[in-house]
Nucleic acid binder design. Structure first.
Lengths: 146, 146
DNA sequence: CTTTAATTCTATCGATTAAATAGAGTAATG
DNA sequence: CATTACTCTATTTAATCGATAGAATTAAAG
C-alpha cells in the first residue's frame, strides 16, 4: 500500500514550495534548492515538477533567476490531487477505483472489491480534504518567525 | 497507493481457499486449481503460497493428492496480516509505519508524516478488523447452495 | 518393493516497469 | 554573447512480475 518514491518526492517538494509561497507569494525557487533541501535526486525531481506543472499545480520561469512556484494557493491543493497526478488512482485495486475504474468479470459478486472500496473511501476521505496548507499547520517550523 | 500484484493474488487465492474450507474444513486444493480459477500465473502463485505457508497462514502436503489448505479458520485471518506478509507495512510512508518504522531526521516536525499516520490508521482500522470470513459474507456466491 | 505419476519446493532467468543519471536543447537575463 | 536554469530525450540501474527447469516428496499402480 506504499506511496511511490515519485509521489513522496512530489509531496515533499510541494510542501517546500508552499512554505516559500506563504513567506512571499511570488517567490521563485530553483530545482536545485528543493533538491538539496529535501535530499531528492535533482534530475528525478525535475521530471516530477514538470508533470506537476503540466497538471496546472506549478508554474515555472526559465533562464537566470528562473525556477518553480505554486500556481495556486496552498489551500487549493489537496494531497489527493497530487498523488493522483503522480501515482494514479488512490484505490488499492483497479476495480475499486472511482477515477480509473477497471472492469473485472466477477464484479457484482466480489467481496474483495467491496472491502477495497471501503479502503479507498477511507483514504480519499482524508487526502481529498487535506491541503498543503493543512500540512503546514501541522509542521511547527512553519509557524516560527523567520 | 496500490496493492502489488502479489498482494492481490495472495488475497484472491486465500478467498478461494476459504470458500473450500467452509465446505470442507479438510479440503486440499492444488495450486493449479487456484491458478485456473483465479487466472493467476501458476509459478508466480506458487511462490506466494509458499510465503503464506512459512508465515503460518497455510499448510501444504506434497505428492499425489497434495495441495494447500488454510491453517486457521477464515475468521482468524485478517486482510492486514496477509498484506503485511506479502507487501510489507500498510503505511504509505516508511516514517508513518507502526510495524516497520523508518526514522527520518525531521520526524518531530513533519506535517506529512502526521497526515500519513492518519491514513495508515484509517487503512489498518479497516484491514486489521476484516477477515476472510467477512469477505465471504459480502460475496453472494459463497452463500448459494452447492 | 519398484516404478510411475502427481504435486510441492528450490533456484534461476527474462521481461516489464519504476527510479535515478547524463547530456543536449531552449529560453531568459545582464 | 556568455551564463544560468528550465525542458526534453536517452540511457542505466534496480525492483517487481512472470516464466522455466528441475529436484524432492508422496501416493498409488503394477
Amino acid at each position: 500500500m506504499k506511496l511511490s518514491k515519485s509521489g513522496e518526492y512530489a509531496l515533499r517538494a510541494l510542501i517546500f514550495l508552499a512554505l516559500r509561497y506563504n513567506k512571499n507569494k511570488d517567490a521563485i525557487v530553483k530545482i536545485q534548492e528543493i533538491s538539496l533541501g529535501e535530499r531528492i535526486p535533482k534530475k528525478f525531481l525535475e521530471s516530477i515538477l514538470l508533470k506537476l506543472k503540466k497538471a496546472g499545480i506549478l508554474k515555472s520561469s526559465r533562464g537566470t533567476g528562473g525556477g518553480y512556484s505554486l500556481n495556486k494557493a496552498p489551500e487549493e491543493i489537496t494531497l489527493a490531487q497530487v498523488i493522483r497526478i503522480i501515482d494514479g488512482p488512490l484505490a488499492p485495486l483497479g476495480c475499486a477505483s472511482v477515477t480509473a475504474h477497471v472492469y473485472c468479470p466477477e464484479e457484482k459478486n466480489c467481496g474483495l472489491q467491496k472491502v477495497m472500496k471501503d479502503v479507498r473511501n477511507a483514504i480519499s476521505g482524508i487526502l481529498d480534504h487535506y491541503t498543503l496548507h493543512d500540512v503546514l499547520l501541522r509542521t511547527s517550523i512553519a509557524n516560527e518567525d523567520g
